[in-house]
Simulated scan of single mutants.
Amino acid sequence: MSNRTGTLHVVATPIGNLGDISPRACEVLGSADHIAAEDTRHSRQLLQRLGLQGSLISLHEHNESARVERLTNWLADGESVALISDAGTPLISDPGYRLVRAVHQAGYPVLTVPGPSSVIAALSIAGLPTDRFSYEGFLPSRAGPRQRRLQALADTACTQVFLEAGRRLPATLEAMEHAFGAEREAAICRELTKRFETTRVDALAGLRAWVAGDSDQCRGEFVLVVGPAPEPAVAPAPGLPATDELVRLLRHEGLGAKSTARVLARLTGASVNQLYQQVLEQDSNPRG
């Protein structure tokens, strides 16, 4: 038994541009006793391009459970293991969950070597709200389950992120338009960090028409970012005047814009932020 502490390193690798590999990722991959890779042929090419040697073992969705015991035994012997996927950050729609969980349960350190992620990359350039987001991964391939899943997500009040393959993109956009509405704002992020990287932001109807008119936009790998569902229209409680009239009355009585929004939120149950914007709009466009 070795006196060293075996450590599992979860290492992010480039999603396209090799220049995105970090010096620390190179150091960890170069020094690890073993590298668990989703596809050893793909990963061997990556290591060769980086000028690194490594002892590779496959770990993918079909053999992960069987690999866990061998890898944890290596950790027990004080050896280090680096976990990588074909591209990006492991475990994000890629294998590794069972291994990471088993290593935690066995009491060995799990360290992150962060880096490229298509999800975060797409969010950072889509121009849609990022204060809250939901990662949904790949949708079901069959039309019925896909539509039901999207329908269940239609009222989600935060930005949603999906992964998609080019051959399924037109059908997915059509399903999204049906479930979310033609006017829902979204972004198509294609081939991120690669030569033909493209990002387009539009309503779902516009994106579907754009893709239908240019077959090249169905080539490659995609991240779809869909904006949050619109907030429901403000409706006053029974017996109250219309909201715009309440705004006018409260402002006439000297309440500030934020105070007016907070009072109306308690009366109507609507969002304070939405009401605050309404107050500002009415202030800038007062009735004669």
Rank of each mutant, 00 (worst) to 15 (best):
T89H: 04
T89F: 06
P90K: 02
I92Q: 09
P95D: 10
A102C: 10
H104D: 03
Y108H: 15
P109E: 09
P109R: 12
L111I: 14
L111H: 13
T112S: 15
T112V: 05
V113E: 01
P114S: 08
G115D: 11
P116H: 07
S117A: 14
I120C: 07
A121K: 04
A121C: 13
A122G: 07
L123S: 05
S124E: 13
A126Y: 06
R132M: 10
F133S: 05
F133R: 07
S134Q: 06
Y135D: 01
G137W: 10
G137M: 11
L139W: 00
S141F: 02
Q147C: 11
R148A: 02
R148W: 00
R149N: 00
A152G: 13
A154C: 11
D155F: 06
T156M: 10
T156G: 09
A157Y: 09
C158G: 12
T159N: 09
V161W: 02
F162I: 02
E164Q: 09
E164G: 03
E164M: 05
A165V: 08
G166H: 04
P170E: 13
A171I: 03
A171Y: 08
A171C: 09
A171V: 07
L173C: 11
M176Q: 10
M176H: 11
M176L: 15
E177T: 13
A179W: 05
A179G: 10
F180E: 03
E183Q: 15
E185R: 15
E185G: 05
E185D: 13
A186M: 10
A186C: 11
R190C: 08
R190W: 03
E191W: 09
E191Y: 09
T193S: 13
F196L: 15
R200Y: 14
